[in-house]
Design a protein around this nucleic acid. Structure first.
Lengths: 132, 132
DNA sequence: CTTATAAATGTTATATTATTACATACTGTT
DNA sequence: AACAGTATGTAATAATATAACATTTATAAG
């Protein structure tokens, strides 16, 4: 059972754009694309992005400074994320692998750290780029 | 057996600083700290950082835009990295766990991607911050 | 319904992080 | 000595992100 977050005006505009685009988008590219909808300033974009990340509707691809819509409908909070990134075509997709997420969510070591969140990025070549 | 990389002048100045500091350092903080040694421009810092990352002497903490000296002497290339990050005190340390690294290095799924590299960041509270 | 509070918005300016472009110098071969 | 590869120096600028402040809208409590 997942809590429905009602998005505000700006949040909805920005989420819809990212979701429709389907891949990772950069903040200023988002800004450019929503200027016709009245969102004029970077901060308006970043505020919406922050909120959308917080509620798990999008994720930040840290190594690319880009944002992608969550591809995993059950993911209400961004506390366990894994992505595969093609270093040739920059295609990104979210990995939904229950064994992997279980393994990482349960990971602990003798450092005394209490882990509550992780983000994993795999890099390589996608199917298409491999065969070129 | 690990290949010895002979560092150039700027690379050595910057590596020594990061290594001595012991924690993650940001590029412009590095710049500030090496200006007395004659390194005046951001690009000089970024070039050295790029090279040091490439040869595995330092790693980039993507979620923090910061650089930390490799704490794992056997790590000549940054192709399999894992870090624990305290969200309260921002302490970062490199995780050296052979089961974890084996698990992730061997990870594959049915996406057709050939993975050659990964970076994992765990977030939570360190021992000290937990008990506050 | 009205008061209080939290969340979201709008706007300007600015801080922080990173790269482009071009010229020069050093290092190790053949 | 000539060449190739790597590193350096310098100036300008691009790209990413936040601070500060004023205002408005939504939500909940009395």
């Amino acid at each position: 059972m997942q809590k429905e977050h009602i998005l505000s005006k700006n949040q909805k505009i920005i989420f819809d754009l990212i979701d429709k685009f389907g891949g990772p988008m950069k903040a200023y590219s988002i800004l450019f694309n929503v200027q016709k909808k009245g969102i004029k300033a970077p901060l308006q974009v970043y505020r919406a992005l922050d909120k959308l990340v917080e509620i798990g509707k999008i994720h930040k691809i840290e190594s690319r400074n880009a944002f992608i819509a969550c591809q995993n409908s059950s993911c209400q909070v961004s506390k366990a994320t894994a992505f595969s990134i093609c270093e040739s075509c920059e295609n990104v997709s979210e990995i939904s692998n229950s064994k992997l997420s279980k393994y990482l969510s349960n990971f602990s070591d003798n450092s005394g750290m209490k882990y509550s969140k992780y983000n994993l990025e795999f890099f390589g070549l996608c199917k298409k780029c491999k065969s070129k």
